[in-house]
C-alpha cells in the first residue's frame, strides 16, 4: 500500500506501457506533472469525473427532502451531510481539472447536458423521508465501501490525497445513516412501514451501485486505481447488510436471496437493465435531475459572468 507521505515526484516519464506497469507494480505513485501514458490519464480522468459527478448529483438527490426535515437539528444535519457531498464534488473536480483533459466548467456543462455519467443510484427519486434514510443507510454505505477500496491503493496521488478526507466523511455519513435507521426501525408502525417501502425501492439500486462484474483485464485494477473487483465488493455488501436488515425486522426485496451452508448470503440474479438505463440517462428521475441542474446553471450564468468581469474566476 502507498502512504500519503510519499513525496510527489514530478516530470517522470516511461518508455512504454510495460515500463509504466512495472512502476505501478513496484508501488509507484503518479503525480500530475508526470508524463503519464495517455491511456492511464484518460481512464483515471474518466473515473474521477464520474466520481465528482456522482457526488454532485448525490447532493441533488438528497436536497429534495431537506425542506421537510422533521426538526431543526435534523435539517442542520442533513444540510451538513449534503454540503459534504457538494464539497467532495468540489475537491474531485479540482483534481480532475488538473489532469488537463477538461476544465471544471466543461465537466459541469457536460454533466448538465447529459454527456457524462454519474452513479445509478442518483437517477432515482427519494419519494418519502424514509427514502432519505435509505440513501443515508444503504447508498452511503455502498459508496463508502467502493471509495475505501479505491483509497486502499490508488496510484494517482492527488486523488488518493482527497480520498483520505472523502472516505473519512463518508464513514461519518454511514454512521449517521445507521443512527437514522435505528430511529425508524425502533419507531412507530408508520415509520417501520415507510422504511420497508423505501428498502423495496432502494435495495437493488444500492446493490447495483458496485456495477456488473469487473472485466478480467480491467485497466483500473491493473493500474491500481481500484483495489477490489466489483463483484467482490458487491458480495461483501450483501453479506454485511442482509443480516443487519433482517435483524431490524425488515425484508429484503429479493425472492431468490439465499444463505449457503457456511452462513453466507447470496443475492439472487441481478437484472442489470435498470443500471444500463441510468447510464443512458433513462433512469426513473434522470430527466428531472438533469433538467433541474441544467436550468439552474443557465439561470445563474449572470453571476459567473459578473465575477468573470471582475476577474474572479469561478
Amino acid at each position: 500500500m502507498h502512504t500519503l507521505a510519499t513525496a510527489p515526484a514530478a516530470g517522470r516519464s516511461w518508455a512504454d506501457l510495460d515500463d509504466f506497469q512495472a512502476f505501478i507494480d513496484a508501488g509507484g505513485m503518479v503525480e500530475p506533472g508526470d508524463d503519464m501514458p495517455p491511456e492511464y490519464r484518460d481512464e483515471v480522468f474518466r473515473f474521477i469525473e464520474f466520481h465528482a459527478n456522482s457526488e454532485l448529483m448525490g447532493g441533488l438527490t438528497e436536497r429534495d427532502w431537506i425542506p421537510h426535515a422533521p426538526g431543526l437539528r435534523l435539517k442542520q444535519v442533513f444540510l451538513a451531510k449534503t454540503q459534504d457531498e457538494i464539497g467532495h464534488a468540489h475537491l474531485l473536480y479540482m483534481v480532475a481539472a488538473d489532469m488537463s483533459v477538461k476544465t471544471r466548467t466543461e465537466m459541469l456543462e457536460d454533466l448538465f447536458a447529459g454527456r457524462s455519467r454519474f452513479h445509478n443510484v442518483f437517477h432515482y427519486q427519494a419519494v418519502t423521508w424514509a427514502d432519505q434514510i435509505a440513501i443515508a443507510y444503504l447508498v452511503d454505505a455502498a459508496a463508502f465501501a467502493s471509495q475505501r477500496a479505491v483509497f486502499a491503493e490508488c496510484t494517482y496521488g492527488p486523488y488518493k490525497r482527497v480520498l483520505k478526507r472523502i472516505v473519512a466523511e463518508e464513514g461519518f455519513h454511514m454512521r449517521h445513516g445507521e443512527e437514522m435507521l435505528l430511529r425508524l426501525a425502533t419507531g412507530t408502525g408508520t415509520q417501520r412501514a415507510m422504511f420497508q417501502e423505501a428498502l423495496n425501492r432502494w435495495w437493488w439500486p444500492a446493490v447495483q451501485l458496485f456495477g456488473p462484474d469487473s472485466d478480467p483485464d480491467d485497466p483500473l485494477l491493473r493500474w491500481k486505481i481500484k483495489s477490489q473487483r466489483n463483484e467482490d465488493l458487491r458480495a461483501a455488501y450483501v453479506q454485511k447488510y442482509v443480516p443487519l436488515l433482517h435483524g431490524y425486522g425488515f425484508e429484503i426485496p429479493d425472492p431468490e436471496l439465499r444463505q449457503d451452508d457456511d452462513g453466507r448470503w447470496h443475492a439472487g440474479p441481478i437484472d442489470w437493465e435498470p443500471l444500463k438505463a441510468t447510464m443512458r440517462m433513462g433512469g426513473p428521475d434522470s430527466k428531472r435531475r438533469i433538467e433541474t441542474a441544467a436550468q439552474n446553471w443557465a439561470d445563474t450564468a449572470w453571476v459567473r459572468d459578473a465575477l468573470d468581469r471582475q476577474g474572479v474566476g469561478t
Binding site: L56, G59, L60, R63, I66, P67, K75, Q76, L79, A80, T82, Q83, I86, G87, A89, H90, Y93, T292, A293, N296, T300, V303, R304, T314
Partner: peptide, 21 residues
C-alpha cells in the same frame, strides 16, 4: 436551504449552505 446543490458555483454553494446552518 433551497439553494443547496444549486448555487451559482460550487464554492458559493458551500458558503451559502453554511450560512443557512
Amino acid at each position: 436551504t433551497s439553494w443547496i446543490g444549486l448555487g451559482p458555483f460550487l464554492e458559493e454553494d458551500l458558503a451559502f449552505c453554511s450560512i443557512a446552518q
